[in-house]
Amino acid sequence: MATMNISLPDQMKAWVEAQTDGGRYSNSSDYVRDLIRREQIKAEKIANMQRLIDEAYASGISDQTPREIFEDIRAEYLAETTRKAG
């Protein structure tokens, strides 16, 4: 495992130390690693949502009414449910 030294203002250092005092993290490195993991997951979720938005824009505008779209989705859902049950 690589080592990285970081500088924090006193207030931030105190915050990190307070998080480790609660027992959830064994030391400040564990806490920082958890923050980084959470940020990685968040970034992946945002990238996935952006991909879905881009796909939606690329698919164009539907000429169906909202009711027609809902009915199509409902029919697909019911067909899938019936297929799985059968």
Rank of each mutant, 00 (worst) to 15 (best):
A2T: 13
A2F: 12
A2I: 14
A2D: 13
M4E: 15
M4K: 15
N5F: 12
N5I: 15
I6G: 05
S7M: 11
L8K: 00
L8H: 01
P9K: 13
D10F: 02
Q11R: 13
Q11D: 11
Q11P: 06
M12R: 05
K13S: 09
K13W: 05
A14R: 07
W15C: 09
W15N: 09
V16F: 00
E17W: 05
E17K: 11
A18I: 08
A18T: 10
Q19I: 03
Q19W: 04
Q19R: 10
T20R: 05
D21W: 08
D21C: 04
D21I: 08
G22E: 02
G22C: 01
G22S: 01
S26T: 13
N27M: 01
N27D: 03
S28R: 01
S28I: 02
S28V: 02
D30F: 02
Y31P: 00
V32D: 02
V32M: 01
R33Y: 11
L35H: 12
I36Q: 00
I36V: 08
R37I: 10
R37Y: 10
R38Q: 09
E39T: 11
Q40H: 14
I41T: 11
K42P: 05
K42M: 13
K42E: 14
K42F: 13
A43W: 03
E44Y: 02
E44C: 03
E44M: 00
N48L: 09
M49L: 08
M49C: 06
Q50G: 03
Q50V: 07
R51F: 07
R51H: 05
R51W: 04
I53S: 07
E55R: 09
A56Y: 11
Y57K: 15
A58R: 04
A58C: 07
S59G: 11
G60C: 07
G60Q: 09
S62V: 10
D63E: 14
Q64L: 15
Q64D: 14
R67F: 15
R67I: 14
I69K: 04
I69G: 00
F70C: 07
E71T: 11
D72L: 15
A75W: 08
E76H: 14
Y77Q: 10
Y77W: 11
Y77T: 11
Y77D: 11
L78F: 10
A79L: 09
A79Y: 05
E80N: 15
E80K: 15
E80S: 14
T81D: 15
T82G: 12
T82S: 13
R83P: 00
K84N: 05
A85W: 12
A85T: 13
A85P: 06
G86T: 02
